[in-house]
Design a binder for these strands. Sequence first.
DNA 1: CTGCATCCAGGCGGATACTG
DNA 2: CAGTATCCGCCTGGATGCAG
Lengths: 125, 125
Amino acid sequence: MVETAQCPDCKRINEVLSRVGDRWSVLVVISLSQYETLRFNELKRHLGISQRMLSLTLRELERDGLVQRKHYPTIPPKVEYRLTKMGQSFREPVKALGLWALDNLGTIDKAREKYDAAASDAVSA
Amino acid sequence: MVETAQCPDCKRINEVLSRVGDRWSVLVVISLSQYETLRFNELKRHLGISQRMLSLTLRELERDGLVQRKHYPTIPPKVEYRLTKMGQSFREPVKALGLWALDNLGTIDKAREKYDAAASDAVSA
DNA sequence: CTGCATCCAGGCGGATACTG
DNA sequence: CAGTATCCGCCTGGATGCAG
């Protein structure tokens, strides 16, 4: 790829997707939007995510200013995560996406079945 | 991961993200929404995507029923891609995401700078 | 409990060469 | 022009082990 004659919008979208577009980030934001405040292992259990990915994801989200980390230097240690203002505003577009998903997942599944059936027909033809 | 006690929503979101959540799919949809109809190499140049990924992405989008492929068996061959009804409806949540991105990318950049500065302070301290 | 470091497999994605 | 096939590097992401 030497070419870079794309629309500027694509760059923007690419940027935002590479920031908060990965599935774990989205899921963490959703979880926090439901529970207000969650601890590390609560999130881990809730999402079924590995420690590593949760750790990485939370660090990035904190770095991006979407999530606030509150650390209690007790023993054993306790860390709470919650959404920042911006994090909460992110729920809106995510919710839009979620609703679209709910509306269209069935249709997509149908389309896939149809497509796959046609493909296997082509093979047997 | 043996655990699977997550919220059902997470599964849904995960599904939709793994379907149309990758950056190339989103960018293809956006391009098609702007240009109505595009040929293979037009998309390729427009997005700065490799043939391989464009080919895979278009096939998936067609399979999911978001993109319609029109093939003219001429020489040289000509193939046009356009959004289906569902593909067009997908623009809505994507647009919401794009607007949020425009509004918040600057803030995110600021947050990152601040975070990184604090991190390097911690190192030098 | 909350993390970080390491290792390792699998998939994403680009470059290249080839077909129709 | 519109793809397919192959090779291969890179990054994601899980498993494990260790530290505070």
